[in-house]
């Protein structure tokens, strides 16, 4: 059980005066993510969606409002909410294996078990044969696979992803999105995670999510919440997909016009 609840979350970044004014990044954001649900947070760059995710992870505190996971207040990071970062954030001095094993070491998982979990996750993301490589020897797509495997290895209750595929080229991105869809579909429903994905790609959100939360421009507020009921695996050419895409695009396009 790992339901996430944002209630009235605002974030104000204090300025330092003289041309550096305080910025209200998020205003009164409230929504929930059900247990085992895949939820995407969609919005323009600068709408505070990454800030929202970092607060859910526990790296930053909301200026007001509360974030609850399973009814407990989020006040610090924990392996129960592991993060996949846009820039991968792999430890460059560790091999692929060591990166994936890091969280398990922190959890004091015994060596033999650790090895088995690492192997399982390497297989899950399809990195067999690259166990001993260092991150600088890998392509962007492979690095992001390592990052996903590392985050999954600690067996989190909620997996947080911050634009995980944004830094990849178009071809790699759609490949990784497909793979992610495969991982989601194949994962044992018993151990299926609650997932929160931050993205600016409408297609990515529809492809992967059970639900999409659309944020407004700064200061970010919840503009709309949509359920995605399409059967998996989903294809960008399906009529239901296209229809939903158009709806979300209209919602976001609204945002391009200045608000009054």
């Amino acid at each position: 059980m790992s339901a996430v609840a944002f209630s009235g979350v605002s974030k104000l970044f204090p300025g330092h005066g003289a041309g550096d004014e305080a910025v209200l990044a998020l205003r009164e954001v409230s929504f929930g993510v059900a247990d085992q649900e895949f939820c995407s947070i969609l919005g323009h760059s600068g709408c505070g969606k990454t800030t929202l995710l970092m607060m859910l992870a526990g790296f930053e505190a909301p200026s007001s409002g509360r974030i609850l996971v399973d009814g407990r207040l989020v006040d610090r990071p924990t392996w129960r909410r592991s993060v996949v970062f846009q820039d991968y954030a792999l430890f460059p001095w560790m091999t692929v294996e060591e990166n994936i094993a890091f969280g398990l070491e922190m959890k004091r998982v015994p060596r033999a078990e650790r090895r088995a979990i690492v192997r399982r996750n390497i297989e899950l993301v399809g990195l067999q044969g690259f166990e001993r490589r260092y991150p600088h020897q890998l392509s962007g797509g492979m690095k992001q696979r390592v990052s996903i495997a590392r985050a999954l290895a600690v067996d989190p209750e909620v997996l947080l992803m911050d634009e995980p595929f944004a830094a990849l080229d178009a071809q790699n991105r759609s490949h990784m999105q497909e793979e992610m869809g495969r991982i989601l579909a194949s994962a044992d429903p018993q151990v299926r995670k609650t997932m929160v994905l931050v993205t600016h790609s409408i297609e990515e959100a529809i492809l992967l999510s059970d639900r999409v939360v659309v944020l407004t421009r700064r200061p970010g507020r919840v503009k709309a919440e949509l359920r995605v009921e399409l059967p998996r695996p989903r294809h960008e050419s399906d009529s239901g997909f296209l229809e939903l895409k158009q709806r979300i695009r209209d919602l976001i396009h609204d945002e391009l016009e200045p608000e009054h």
Binding site: P77, F91, W93, A151
Partner: peptide, 29 residues
């Protein structure tokens, strides 16, 4: 040291000393 490296370690369960020893020291090495 990149903020996200420290954040990654924190959300993987590292405590302050583990972060200093396993991440900050290595990254600054």
């Amino acid at each position: 040291v990149e903020t996200n490296l420290v954040r990654a370690a924190r959300c993987l369960g590292a405590n302050v000393w583990q972060i200093l020893w396993r991440v900050v020291l290595r990254a600054a090495l």
